[in-house]
């Protein structure tokens, strides 16, 4: 578990006043987490208990809301499947595009590759609204509106710059000596790639994929603007609770829990590995 990693790092030892600070840290941790905990709790209540002016902490839990959220006709599985397909699809396409590009940039750098890398990262900062209208119009004329393919490609474009950068920085961590040793040992480009570079970069590739997965799963702008039903993801599903149905708090909570649980848990395990990509390698 990643958490133990941090415990080994020496910080200020808890001294005088340490107990108070420890208590404060725990209190803040719990407070930050409380809304998530509260949703989980509400999801286990009946609608009557959930919707009351005085919150209830002790009650007999029921899975009724989950049952109805997962029931036939609620559509959860349809949206979840779309989320899975678009998130995993965009991650795989992204890795397939990013790995060769990062390989060229990391191991055969030139002015041109440096420029390309900076250019790629800079496209990350074109806000989605900046390309929304043309993408919408072109998608409409190509029949890509409300398709998983169309959405997957948008997620890929959204994540590709970060993925290239992350894979690049992991590749760059491989000592050049090892690549040279492989070439002296008789390995060609492909053999070096598959027998030396990829195995060494595997943890890095995994965290790149994880980050892309999380970002794509939580994406809502493109899902809300480019899909209706066929390709609609869980973001669209939960957004549908924003009016009217929002009165059924237990069901809303159950749906929310089902939407965020996979990614929050994934995030717990990947927190350390994500930091580096998110800071463009400034922190290791």
């Amino acid at each position: 578990m990643t958490a133990s990693n941090a415990d080994r790092t020496p910080g200020r030892k808890a001294g005088s006043g340490g107990t108070a600070l420890t208590l404060l840290a725990w209190l803040i941790g719990i407070a930050m987490f409380f809304p998530i905990f509260w949703v989980v709790l509400t999801a286990l209540k009946t609608e009557q208990t959930a919707f009351s002016m005085t919150p209830t902490f002790i009650f007999s839990p029921t899975l009724e809301s989950f049952r109805s959220a997962l029931a036939q006709g609620s559509g959860y599985w349809h949206y979840a499947l779309n989320s899975v397909i678009t998130a995993f699809g965009s991650t795989l396409v992204g890795l397939a595009l990013a790995i060769p590009a990062a390989y060229a940039m990391a191991f055969f750098p030139s002015r041109r590759t440096d420029f390309t890398l900076v250019w790629m990262v800079s496209t990350k900062f074109i806000p989605a609204v900046g390309v929304l209208i043309p993408v919408f119009l072109v998608y409409r004329s190509l029949g890509l509106i409300d398709t998983r393919l169309g959405l997957t490609m948008l997620f890929t474009a959204m994540n590709l710059p970060i993925m290239v950068w992350m894979v690049y920085s992991y590749f760059r961590d491989i000592p050049i000596d090892i690549i040279e040793a492989a070439s002296i040992d008789g390995a060609g480009t492909a053999q070096t790639m598959f027998r030396v570079i990829l195995p060494l970069a595997l943890p890095g590739l995994a965290s790149t994929g994880l980050l892309a997965l999380i970002l794509a799963w939580n994406e809502s702008f493109w899902s809300l603007t480019m899909t209706d039903y066929h390709a609609a993801t869980l973001a669209v599903y939960t957004a549908s609770f924003k009016s009217g149905e929002g009165l059924f708090w237990a069901r809303l909570s159950a749906a929310s829990v089902l939407t965020i649980a996979p990614i929050v848990v994934l995030g717990w395990f990947a927190q350390r590995q994500m930091v580096r990509g998110l800071t463009f390698g400034a922190v290791k």
């Binding site: 000596d177 492989a182 002296i184 040992d185 390995a187 060609g188 060494l200």
Partner: peptide, 30 residues
């Protein structure tokens, strides 16, 4: 001629061992 076709072996200052391979496979790789 490519390094791999020169029939030479090199010992690096950093050793440049393949970290993901056992000692046996490091030696057997070539």
């Amino acid at each position: 001629v490519e390094p791999r076709d020169r029939d030479i072996a090199m010992v690096f200052q950093s050793y440049a061992l393949y970290p993901h391979m056992s000692v046996y496979h490091n030696m057997a790789f070539a």
